[in-house]
């Protein structure tokens, strides 16, 4: 049986197909203003028997394709445990939200935290800031690694932080130092969220932002642990969804 899991996020759509407990297909693409058609395009390309959707757009998939749904929290829990059977804590920083999830011994979600409403401290925030500083998103983390720890950014609101960054630039501050300060601010916020659910190792770091080396460094330093980062941190939710599709 081919089980399809789809994670319809605010920024990207991720898709995984599992057969006999092994992923046989993975795909990622940017989401658009028309998520349904975007999803349709992908579904036309593949074959599957059962389907389960997660992510921000899961209820769209439910309405449109009669798909079963679970929340990202459950999907990430299942996906992370599949990749790392010992995993007890997950930090997921995606396009529009940040989640901290704590699992018990058996892999069941016992507690979670999520940012509410705004995109403060999420992938989207990093993207906006990278743009202001003239970086591509994939070089942003490396640039920040080269910066000095001489300044602090206090604002986590995308709008206010933008103002803060622009005034720092106007003061002649080096852009990699600003980049570093921005990373530190997000890491601080995320580690506080993790601490609220309790940090038990192994801690899996997932979501698009887990590709950012500076975020990893800061988080490891602040939490005083080493993080486990999946080979493709963005696919964890879709993987979990595919596994759950098989169970339903």
């Amino acid at each position: 049986m081919k089980c399809l899991g789809i994670d319809i996020g605010s920024r990207t759509i991720k898709l995984t197909i599992m057969k006999n407990g092994k992923p046989i297909y993975m795909h990622k693409s940017l989401n658009t203003y028309d998520p349904i058609n975007e999803v349709k395009k992908h579904l036309n390309d593949v074959e599957y028997d059962v389907m389960l959707a997660t992510g921000y757009g899961r209820s769209l998939a439910q309405r449109e394709f009669n798909a079963e749904t679970v929340t990202e929290i459950k999907a990430f829990a299942v996906g992370a445990r599949h990749l790392f059977p010992e995993c007890r804590t997950i930090l997921d920083i995606g396009g529009q939200d940040t989640k901290a999830i704590s699992l018990n011994d058996a892999g069941k979600v016992v507690k979670f935290e999520m940012n509410d409403r705004c995109a403060a401290g999420t992938g989207r925030f990093l993207e906006v800031m990278a743009k202001i500083l003239g970086y591509e998103i994939d070089e942003f983390g490396n640039a920040a690694l080269k910066g000095d720890d001489n300044i602090q950014i206090s604002s986590m609101c995308t709008v206010f932080a933008e103002t803060e960054v622009i005034s720092l630039l106007a003061r002649g501050e080096k852009r990699e130092n600003i980049a570093r300060a921005l990373h530190r601010a997000i890491a601080k916020r995320s580690s506080a969220m993790l601490k609220r659910v309790g940090v038990i190792e192994p801690v899996v770091f997932a979501g698009g932002v887990a590709q950012n080396p500076c975020m990893i460094e800061f988080l490891e330093e602040m939490l005083d642990i080493s993080l486990v980062v999946p080979e493709d941190p963005q696919i964890v939710g879709a993987l979990g969804a595919a596994i759950l599709a098989g169970e339903k």
């Binding site: 679970v70 990202e72 016992v110 979670f112």
Partner: peptide, 21 residues
């Protein structure tokens, strides 16, 4: 939360996840 509808999607995710737990 407040009375505005802008956070309904996020609320749904958090509450559905709580129900899953």
């Amino acid at each position: 939360t407040d009375y505005s509808m802008e956070d309904v999607e996020q609320l749904k995710t958090r509450i559905e996840a709580f129900v899953e737990v």
